[in-house]
């Protein structure tokens, strides 16, 4: 078994940077975040890395490991070819703050643009609702999202084309879907999805689905149904006729 391995970690800030190699001990069960922490504690105290739960639940430690978007806390060293240098670099779709930490504040601003939850009136006199488990199950998948933003990181509309001003990205289509398909919600978010949030820009390459650490079927279960709803709402010939006749 390998007892030492080399990690090439991106060091730098918005002005520039480079990969620095660090050799460190590895032991059974270690994940990439453990190696980063060990290097930080022993060799580079100022190595910037964002993390919290270390159990795949908070979505803080997103990075690109050997070029693959991953949560560092859930990427085991035993799954990597440690015979060669393992590269660890920050997410590329967001501005770099320092080392492995990026400025993801754009995501939080985008969320505010999505209309908030608006429930139907309560079903019972005591102010509560009755909901079937099947209706809960339908949206639970979307509500599992831990906001790690790896889907945003790989989406070419953001990563290559930088259309951050006209496209909200897979995370927020999932969020919109969780509200649109919420059994109690009565709001309509389709006009914005079409006009300002850019759902039409997604050409369903499914890159987001592939990297989701929560295994949310982002494209098939969230984006495509939203696209269909937008089509129904705005391109249905009968509805179009109605809209034209409206004063």
């Amino acid at each position: 078994m390998i007892t030492k391995a080399t990690f090439g970690i991106w060091r730098g800030d918005a002005r520039g940077g480079k990969f620095e190699n660090y050799e460190t001990r590895v032991s059974e069960g270690m994940v990439v975040l453990d190696a980063v922490h060990q290097i930080q504690a022993e060799q580079a105290n100022d190595l910037a890395v964002r993390w919290n739960c270390k159990a795949g639940k908070c979505g803080s430690c997103s990075a690109e490991v050997n070029g693959n978007p991953k949560l560092m806390c859930m990427t085991r060293l035993s799954d990597l070819p440690l015979g060669k240098t393992t590269t660890i670099e920050p997410m590329r779709a967001f501005p770099l703050i320092r080392d492995l930490v990026t400025d993801v504040s754009w995501n939080f601003r985008v969320k505010k643009q999505i209309k908030k939850f608006k429930p139907r009136p309560p079903d019972a006199p005591d102010g509560t609702w009755r909901i079937a488990q099947e209706d809960v199950d339908r949206v639970q998948e979307f509500r599992k999202c831990i906001e790690c933003f790896l889907c945003q990181d790989v989406c070419h509309v953001l990563r290559e084309h930088h259309l951050h001003n006209e496209f909200i990205g897979p995370r927020y289509f999932v969020y919109a879907a969780s509200l649109e398909m919420h059994p109690l919600d009565t709001e309509n978010r389709l006009a914005e999805l079409k006009k300002t949030q850019g759902i039409g820009l997604c050409n369903i390459t499914k890159c987001c689905t592939k990297v989701c650490p929560e295994n949310i079927t982002i494209t098939d279960n969230a984006i495509i149904p939203l696209k269909e709803r937008v089509v129904d709402e705005f391109y249905d010939p009968i509805k179009k006729l109605f809209r034209m006749l409206k004063p």
């Binding site: 909901i131 079937a132 509200l179």
Partner: peptide
């Protein structure tokens, strides 16, 4: 807890649709 539901939280349900 009921207030959380009114703000959008979705809990698992009983057979008759309660939390």
């Amino acid at each position: 807890v009921r207030e959380l539901e009114a703000w959008g939280a979705l809990f698992d349900r009983t057979k008759d649709g309660r939390i």
